[in-house]
Nucleic acid binder design. Structure first.
Length: 424
RNA sequence: GGAGAGGUGCCGGAGCUGGUCGAACGGGCCUGACUCGAAAUCAGGUGUACUGCUCUGCAGUACCGAGGGUUCGAAUCCCUCCCUCUCCGCCA
């Protein structure tokens, strides 16, 4: 969430940003409601002051008539206050709803554009493989080798669920260990997080657990939801706290399952493991001082690059355009791996994403630190995918498939897998 | 899941027969005095958020786990929830 006062004082910039991001939000309404809120707040505080003064006058011994008069006055004040409090509560609700629609500001260098086609390609790594045979997509490969079972999962759990089987299980665990070893070496605190979080935490991170369009599964009657990413549980880790960031950023890594409703998502580009209701992800999350976040975002990106270079997977890095940023992000880089089975003749598919959310999440979650001037500031938060296992599996199966239908395991994973190839 | 105890400021810990409580007392921390310096001692100070204004400050409001309620007035009484601890049960 943006600061109300910031929206008021920078209305033109906020309006421009909303346009660039291709979202609908009404900053004028926020300003109007904010002004109204302050007006009502003044009224309310004045009434409360009167109530406090009235109560204070009744401390000692008083003539019964005087006391009675004061009680009557107090009663009248009480009723007035209750009325104003009610309109205040309604006003705050409205203000919050309007403010939540306003996305974070964007980095001045973020490319301006409407959709993912407008993302700016920054670099490529690795060679796109050329096959002497017709490459299969990961679904064909996986089914042929009994690595993934969509059909049974469909019966047991529903469409877009899957059983990982046999070597695919080892592959998930190997990818997890591979990523964790790298992150540990980089100084990240390793965690396995809960897969469930309170709704307020999810909201603070920028996920809306309710509503038609929500991608989040809620757990009825509990006020909690299944996490769509460990970003939620890692960002919630320090919610409401005053952090000591004087020794540098807090770097955390979290392994979690990720649950997404993905309502209405279907089609060639969501095929197989690409878009599923549940997958495992190793996520990076960082808390830092405001002046550190730009550099830290580049660091997270470089870790993602290192992880995928290590896996020998060809990828490109894109600077996400304003229209494709998502509400909380100030700037975002995606790694897109080459997936030979995607589309007609192979295509790039997003495998990681790293964002600098500046103070947008921290404001709502109440994550602060003491600045050098002694003032309390909201921390900046960043997140980035280390490995989204299901998509990494796609990239591995499709890129390293061999003519006989077997799949080579990239060298870095062999020690974790215990085998050099998957073959039937 | 059952029974009991409890959640107060940076920490410990009073208050909980409603008004004198933003909160005793102790510790910590900061400033000043003493000192060559330090320790000890003494004096003063020490939260956060929001709002307003005559805006390097002043005033007001709120905050004693969270949310409701009772009351002229609640840290103090009542209800719900969350969390912690002890015991029992159950269990991977």
């Amino acid at each position: 969430m943006l600061d109300f006062k910031y929206i008021k004082d920078n209305l033109d910039a906020v309006r421009e940003n909303i346009k660039n991001r291709n979202v609908t939000a009404n900053p004028e309404k926020v300003v109007e409601l904010y002004d109204k809120r302050n007006e009502v707040l003044q009224e309310l505080e004045d009434l409360r002051r009167q109530r406090n003064e009235n109560a204070a006058r009744m401390k000692g011994k008083l003539e019964p008539e005087v006391r009675q008069t004061l009680i009557e006055e107090g009663k009248a004040l009480k009723e007035k206050i209750a009325g104003v409090e009610q309109s205040m509560a309604a006003l705050l609700e409205e203000l919050k709803d309007a403010a939540q629609l306003i996305p974070n500001m964007a980095h001045p260098d973020a490319p301006i554009g409407k959709e993912d086609k407008d993302n700016l390609e920054l670099l490529r790594s690795g060679e796109i493989p050329s096959f002497s045979f017709r490459p299969k997509d990961h679904v064909e490969l996986a089914e042929a080798m009994d690595l993934v079972d969509f059909e049974t999962a469909g019966r047991v759990s529903g469409s877009k669920f899957y059983y990982l089987k046999n070597e695919a299980v080892l592959l998930e665990l190997a990818l997890t260990r591979y990523a964790l070893d790298i992150l540990r070496e980089k100084g990240f605190i390793l965690t396995i997080t809960p897969d469930i979080a309170r709704e307020e935490i999810a909201e603070g991170i920028g996920f809306n657990p309710r509503g038609e369009e929500s991608n989040i599964y809620t757990l009825e009657g509990t006020g909690t939801c299944l996490v769509g990413t460990a970003e939620i549980t890692l960002g919630g880790y320090h919610a409401g706290q005053m952090l000591d960031l004087s020794q540098g950023p807090i770097l955390m890594a979290g392994v979690s399952h990720c649950f997404r409703r993905e309502a209405g998502a279907a089609g060639q580009y969501s095929k197989g493991l690409y878009r599923v209701h549940q997958f495992t992800k190793i996520e990076m999350f960082a808390y830092c001082r405001e002046e550190e976040s730009d550099d830290l975002l580049l660091k997270l990106r470089s870790i993602e690059e290192e992880i995928f270079r290590g896996l020998e997977i060809p990828f490109r890095v894109v600077d996400t355009c304003t229209g494709d940023l998502g509400g909380p992000a100030y700037r975002k880089f995606d790694l897109e791996a080459w997936m030979p089975g995607r589309g007609e003749k192979g295509d790039w598919g997003e495998v990681t994403s790293t964002s600098n959310c500046t103070d947008y999440q921290a404001r709502r979650l109440g994550i602060r630190y003491k600045g050098e001037d002694g003032k309390n500031r909201y921390a900046h938060t960043l997140n980035g995918t280390a490995i989204a296992v299901s998509r990494a599996i796609i990239a591995i199966l499709e890129n390293f498939q061999q003519e006989d239908g077997s799949v080579r395991i990239p060298g870095k994973l062999v020690p974790y897998m215990g085998i050099k190839e998957i073959r039937r």
